[in-house]
Computed example of a mutant assay.
Amino acid sequence: MKIILRVLLILLLAPLAAMAEDLPSWNEGKSRQAIVDFVTTVTTQGGEGFVAPEDRIAVFDNDGTLWSEQPFYFQLGFMLDRVKALAPQHPEWSEKEPFKSILAGDLKGIAKSGEKGIVELGMATHAGMTTEAFTKIVTDWYATARHPKFHKPYDEVTFLPMRELLDYLRANEFKTYIVSGGGVEFMRPITEKAYGIPPEQVIGSTIVTQYALVDDVPVLNRLPKIDFIDDGAGKPAGINKFIGRRPIFVAGNSDGDYEMLRWVTSGPQKGFGMIVHHTDAVREFAYDRESAFGKLDKALDEAEARKWLLVDMKADWKKIYTFE
């Protein structure tokens, strides 16, 4: 009889123990429970909400959703460092914006150059080389650059709870993708190490690449011309183009993810939408409606009505980074 009781206790407690191991950096509460409930629903075979594994697609924004985006986007930090490194080859930059402001350390001056200036900055720092050369430049930068607030390598300033969420979804036969406004070839060198997401599952903004032969060796040259902007309405278009299935799970943090949130959660599978709300000024940053980076306004207003989970970083996460 004692053996039977022991077996019964093990069978009853095993699911609870397994659940306790899931999402360990998430506090118990509405947010964590909503995620677990959704995953349980779509993975319960024979249940009303069951979704076949091949249709379990999850998409994640990157900046502000999987890693920090303050005090500026990591890719902007890369651009600033590249301008400084290339400046000796371009004496004309000392009198030309936005390069002049960068070299003077004037962030407000950079902002004044607007979208036109940022595009020019991107072309100057991201084009004019082969794809292999650019990958090496980016990889070397990640190895040495440090975040201005935390003084850690940029690829360590990733959100531990979100990495756990990625692992949790994959353990339940989800296929996870990044769908970001950032440059795809800026993200790909580190996404597999940081998140377990391979390069082919990263969708981002691109510039034109062109096939060429250099000394009879095939190369892809990066040209100073925008190909695709994976932001706003571009995100659902990019998902359709590169994935070919409508996801059933989407996570973002800003109005740049609004169209992606709407498209995923209005599908026939009634997809799950979540927004990471930056509310922790001590451990990370606190911002939403007025931020120059990761502005969250329209999506914040509509989150409740559209049944998007609003994750309160301060209240819902025990830890934000592994280095805490």
Rank of each mutant, 00 (worst) to 15 (best):
W67G: 04
G64D: 00
V59M: 00
I35Q: 10
L76P: 00
V59D: 02
R32P: 01
V59R: 01
Q75W: 12
L80D: 01
F78Q: 02
T41D: 12
T44K: 15
V83F: 08
Q33E: 11
F72L: 08
P88D: 10
V39K: 05
G49K: 13
R56C: 05
R82Q: 15
F60D: 01
D37C: 07
P88W: 09
Q33M: 11
R56V: 07
G46I: 12
R56Y: 10
F72E: 05
W67H: 04
T40M: 08
M79D: 14
P88H: 03
V42L: 02
P71V: 11
L66G: 05
L76C: 09
D61Y: 00
D81I: 09
F60K: 02
D63N: 03
D61A: 00
L80E: 04
F74H: 05
R82S: 15
W67E: 08
G47P: 02
F50E: 03
F50G: 08
P53D: 15
F60M: 00
D81F: 09
V83N: 03
F38M: 13
D81L: 06
D81T: 07
L76K: 11
D37F: 06
V42P: 11
D81A: 06
A58Y: 05
A34N: 07
H90D: 14
E48F: 06
G77R: 01
H90T: 11
G64I: 06
K84E: 15
A85I: 10
V36A: 04
E54L: 09
R32V: 04
G49E: 12
N62T: 03
T40V: 06
E48I: 13
K84C: 09
V59F: 01
D61Q: 00
F60E: 02
M79A: 15
R32W: 14
E48R: 15
A52T: 15
M79Y: 15
Q33N: 10
D63R: 01
V42T: 14
F72T: 13
F50L: 04
Q70S: 10
I57V: 09
D61V: 03
T43Q: 03
I35P: 06
A87V: 02
W67S: 13
A87Y: 01
A58P: 05
A87D: 09
E48T: 14
K84G: 02
D61C: 03
L76H: 11
T44R: 14
L80K: 08
V83K: 00
Q89F: 13
F72Q: 10
